[in-house]
Design a protein around this nucleic acid. Structure first.
Lengths: 202, 202
DNA sequence: ATCGTAACTTACACTAGTGTAAGCTCCGCC
DNA sequence: GGCGGAGCTTACACTAGTGTAAGTTACGAT
């Protein structure tokens, strides 16, 4: 039973740090925040705990660093998706375009978006805050875009709740593509959304 | 520094069991599932761990018992709220009546409904299952009620997604009464819902 | 070639929780 | 009045994780 002395794949600090964040994200994705521990991360990365402590102060610091990276990614994607407040064209096309962009982003990076769409306990307060901020930003843009009404000459009684309604429905659609993409392909969700918007705009 | 020998409030088995479930529920409500431990429950109940083990096999058993009690309560309330599948009157009144019942139930027992509406990791799989079952039952009833259309002669293109949309919006409204009842009193939510339904039915 | 440092390991002391065995104590009841 | 069982505590052995000090090893720069 000869024990091979192990390849010893020494990394640079930066590489190791990224790997640790990847490992942390993977554990959260597979088993949730409660499954993350310095020990578990080290074990999965094939190293010992002090290495992790060399990069992050403690479990909180590790999670925050990972979440900072992921929320930054999610925000960057969102920025590309959301139409500018200065949108001039039809509300219908704007909203449907944004929804399609959203659903495709979610399908493209499910693990990250699962953090946003299915927030879980055990996560540091910071996650809730970040998600809250992001959502508030989206709601503000939406409320602004929707304030003049969904169709010319048709004022909305409660633009704030309307924006919230749209955002909630978009999030729920995104959740469906995460959890049941076979029964609810993007096209089916888009068709339903188009019908809904037409109803609301009339 | 005389230590008073403590009142020793011995309970019967049944009383103790209920108290332990109450304590567990309170801890979950205040600090989430991850904060529940046999030790924490015993400490808060003012007794020692073996007493808890006398009533429940382990942490899982304790949580399941608590959740069984709470989900049963929630289901009982739901049954009183949901209109019968055989409803004959106006869709509008039926849906709005159900929504109002729902929101009032949530405001009446926020801790229990928080478990349902903001499900958290750390909970046993059983919670997700129970919630999933409950939601599916509601969705089935809703889809059935909604299949003939929201107004006479107006067929819905996708009753399943429509039911899901209604359920999602109801849940989101409920979430708003939980988290921000000042800014979103029940009447404001009801007004918005009424407007939405009128739009969809036209 | 070798020195210096970054990367990494070993080893230790500590915390908080789990689960159980043994025994004490209160209280209803014959 | 005392006995028996339900309700409870004390005490112990164990597990899994935390955080750190000290030491070892690889490897690029000089």
């Amino acid at each position: 039973m000869s024990v091979t002395p192990r390849p010893q794949p020494r990394m640079t600090g930066a590489e190791r740090r990224e790997q640790l964040l990847d490992v942390t994200k993977a554990i959260v994705g597979e088993a949730g925040f409660h499954a993350v521990s310095i020990e578990a991360v080290a074990r999965r990365a094939g190293i010992t705990r002090p290495v992790v402590y060399g990069h992050f102060n403690d479990l909180g610091g590790l999670l925050e660093a990972m979440l900072a990276r992921e929320t930054a990614r999610a925000r960057a994607q969102l920025a590309r998706i959301l139409p500018p407040v200065s949108w001039e064209g039809s509300s219908r096309e704007m909203l449907l375009g944004a929804l399609r962009g959203y659903l495709e982003a979610v399908r493209g990076d499910p693990v990250t978006w699962r953090l946003v769409l299915m927030p879980q306990e055990g996560a540091p307060e910071m996650l809730r805050e970040q998600i809250g901020k992001g959502r508030d930003a989206v709601l503000e843009v939406l409320a602004e875009l929707v304030r003049p009404g969904l169709a010319p000459g048709r004022v909305l009684p409660d633009p704030v709740l309307m924006a919230r309604t749209l955002s909630t429905l978009a999030d729920d659609a995104a959740r469906l593509t995460l959890t049941d993409p076979d029964q609810f392909p993007i096209e089916r969700l888009m068709d339903h959304a188009a019908w809904l918007i037409d109803q609301l705009a009339t």
